[in-house]
């Protein structure tokens, strides 16, 4: 599994890194931490690039490297990564141009397997989408603070699953709220819920929500299949059926102490573009972390 963790500042990125690295550690995934720096307009990009090159000759880091250096040090201080025994021999932080507007950062004295630090500049949606499409990530993890619109666009336009780390509190004991139904993507969502439950060592509430008074047979069997999967993988779970509107009911049930996990909508892209979708509506209203599994 390939995980992409998108960060953009030191201030709001700790929860995003925490969540991303917990999942990555459990799944032994290859992880990329991406910082998208400010967009430079075309009148000036050559001048900015010359200024950046000159900065290197002064032993000064290019803008953005400090954020990735901070992220690396944070992961180390929280024991998410351990430096390899043989340090690299760089005398200073190095930025290697990897083409298509992305550079890989190699930090002075730091070497670790399965972790890449990537720097890009530009529009955050376009750069994240390009990174995901070009390198086939399975999961993209982004912060939730003030980024509903960004998460909304990413859910619409990228192929990977998306974890929006909205209001994540390390001290809070979370449960997973897994919304099941009879859609094609349901199985993937259940599998992902198992992985997250294992990563955080938490329990799962399996809910099937329907407008009708009596829950349909298909929804019921989807719940049972999910429960069976949890049992087989050793994850504790409870099954609930709730009558009501999916979006409001799920948001109310989740409050701020659940991680919502649901599959992507089976609507066509055009319908989603004009009418929106249930997962997007949940994401816009919820006050807790949420995963949309694709």
């Amino acid at each position: 599994m390939k995980i992409l963790i998108g960060i953009s500042s030191k201030k709001f990125s700790e929860p995003t890194l925490d969540v991303g690295m917990r999942i990555a550690s459990t799944l032994n995934s290859s992880t990329t931490i991406l910082d998208v720096g400010k967009k430079v307009n075309e009148f000036s990009y050559k001048d900015v690039s010359i200024a950046n090159e000159l900065m290197e000759s002064w032993d000064l880091d290019r803008p953005g490297v400090d954020v990735l250096e901070w992220a690396y040090n944070y992961l180390q201080s929280e024991n998410y990564i351990t430096k390899s025994s043989i340090d690299n021999s760089f005398s200073k932080n190095l930025l290697i141009d990897k083409g298509i507007g992305r550079s890989e950062v190699f930090l002075k004295g730091a070497a670790v397997t399965n972790l890449s630090l990537i720097l890009r500049n530009g529009n955050i949606i376009e750069e994240l989408r390009d990174e995901v499409q070009s390198f086939n990530y399975d999961l993209t993890i982004i912060g939730g603070s003030g980024r509903r619109r960004m998460a909304h666009d990413l859910v619409q336009y990228i192929d990977s699953s998306i974890f929006v780390v909205n209001n994540f509190n390390r001290k809070q004991t979370y449960r997973i709220l897994l919304a099941v139904n009879d859609s094609k993507g349901n199985k993937k969502a259940v599998k992902f819920a198992v992985r997250v439950a294992q990563a955080f060592n938490i329990e799962v509430d399996i809910v099937s929500i329907s407008n009708k008074e009596k829950i349909s047979e298909k929804f019921h069997s989807a719940s049972l299949r999910a429960e069976k999967m949890m049992r087989r993988t050793g994850v504790k779970s409870k099954v609930r059926s709730i009558e009501g509107d999916l979006v409001n009911t799920l948001v109310d049930a989740a409050r701020d102490n659940h991680i919502i996990i649901m599959g992507t909508s089976s609507q066509s892209p055009i319908s989603k573009f004009f009418l929106g979708s249930k997962p997007l509506a949940v994401m816009e209203s919820c006050n807790c972390p949420m995963v949309i599994v694709k």
Binding site: M55, L60, D66
Partner: peptide, 22 residues
């Protein structure tokens, strides 16, 4: 050109003053 050449000078002074360039 001058902007690009002067930028590292300013950042070096800031760093030398013990302040973070970030």
């Amino acid at each position: 050109t001058v902007g690009a050449m002067m930028l590292p000078v300013a950042l070096a002074l800031i760093r030398n003053a013990g302040l973070s360039t970030g």
